[in-house]
Design a protein around this nucleic acid. Structure first.
Lengths: 238, 238
DNA sequence: CGTGAACTTGAGATTTCTCAAGCGGGGTGG
DNA sequence: CCACCCCGCTTGAGAAATCTCAAGTTCACG
């Protein structure tokens, strides 16, 4: 159940057997979410952490008039609302696809962190990587064209999913709509659609029915000015 | 020397006398940076943490062709490269104004964190707040007009500086150029300049020679769609 | 008095947006 | 089993925001 979490935490350094056993012993309540369903809402002060076990999720803020900004995507092994441990939520988290989520009581989490500095440090590190990703998104929204921005996002997800073994033969599932894509990148759906066609036309990728196919990985990286260093992964999808 | 840091860490909950004394006992080497000088550079793997003692600093990434994106501003009491403790730097940090910086060896920092869970937690919380600010910037760059974006940034800094007691009579020092402003918000200098004039013309603020004067705080907040909740401050400048 | 950085202005070029409408497939009720 | 409907995708076209280029101004500083 927590396999992906341990994997995630061990990306940069092994945990002790003791640490691993403590994680495995976490009390976990399972729940399933349907696509689009909210897992936490802005303003909540959650009493549990939500560990994504299968499926994808995303963080977002929605303004009064309906404009929405998606701020990150989450893959299995991520805790989607870790900040809820210390702060109230200033944004919402929703399921992208059908998702299985493990609920871990804050009390258990706090005990785990206080008793296991190595886990605390590893979890903090995943947090820092998330912040690095957020900064890279800022660079994109502030300083890159729509074309580069879209290319970059696909590079990022391709690399992240690849690192989890979810890329096969240049293909991976990435079940988002063009609306999600637009809301991630700060674009209109219309423009996103046209730029997507350009990327396809340039032979870089196809994206259809929630499946991403990368036809020209070096070309796509160049188009997106993608340098995976900020992901702090150990290896990158070939 | 570390007064601001303790203040910062105690924003949400007191530390014990023991914790406070441990912080005060940190070995600290002082160094001064001139405006624009780099404190850490992308790619560095620092061996010390940089605690900002006086002055302002900012994080940024610069692309090959010179486009730059500023990703955050830092005030006294912030550790500007805390992620260097666990990761290599994927961006640079530079001094905005003349700044005094305390260098703390990573070894001392690690010992402090491992021995004092409360400090570890408090520091993590400041990190989470930073991430929240980053998300709000994303909303701005993705979904707000230049006018709202500029207003919002000034609201944010006014609130943050106000919370530190650095606002007096609706005025505060915020020593950035219009170029910095543009690079923070993903705008061209020309456009920034014109929008700034509009904000001044609408009687919301003046910004000249690195001094921000807020003439109409409610109006400015409305223009920027500013809701300080994401800053997770205890109080907001009046 | 000369110089450079920051700021300002003008004007045309681009990117991206908005509005409006048509298309297509999967799901549902009759 | 079929018609209908909705959501997501696509296209067209004019509008708006923002950018780039180019030059002029101001002011602090040496």
């Amino acid at each position: 159940m927590v396999g992906r979490l341990v994997e995630n935490l061990e990306l940069y350094g092994r945990l002790s057997e003791l640490d691993r056993r403590a994680i495995a012993a976490l009390p976990l309540t399972l729940r399933r979410f349907e696509p689009g369903e909210d897992m936490v809402i802005e303003g909540d002060a959650p009493s549990h952490c939500r560990l994504l076990i299968s499926g994808l999720a995303f963080r977002h803020k929605t303004l009064r008039d309906g404009r929405r900004q998606i701020m990150s995507f989450h893959v299995p092994g991520d805790i989607c609302d870790i900040e809820g441990l210390l702060l109230s939520m200033d944004h919402s988290v929703s399921a992208l696809s059908r998702a299985e989520v493990g609920f871990i009581p804050h009390l258990a989490m706090e005990a785990l962190l206080d008793g296991h500095p190595a886990i605390s440090r590893a979890l903090w590190r995943t947090e820092l990587v998330e912040a690095a990703v957020a900064r890279e998104w800022m660079v994109g929204m502030g300083r890159r064209t729509a074309y580069a921005r879209i290319a970059h996002l696909f590079c990022e997800m391709y690399a992240r999913l690849g690192a989890m073994g979810l890329v096969e033969n240049g293909r991976c599932r990435f079940p988002i709509t063009q609306t999600h894509l637009s809301d991630s990148l700060g674009l209109s759906v219309v423009h996103t659609n046209r730029v997507l066609q350009a990327l396809r036309g340039d032979g870089l990728l196809s994206f259809r029915g929630g499946e991403l196919i990368v036809h020209d990985w070096p070309g796509l990286q160049a188009a997106g000015e993608f340098d995976p260093a900020y992901l702090h992964l150990r290896s990158v999808a070939a």
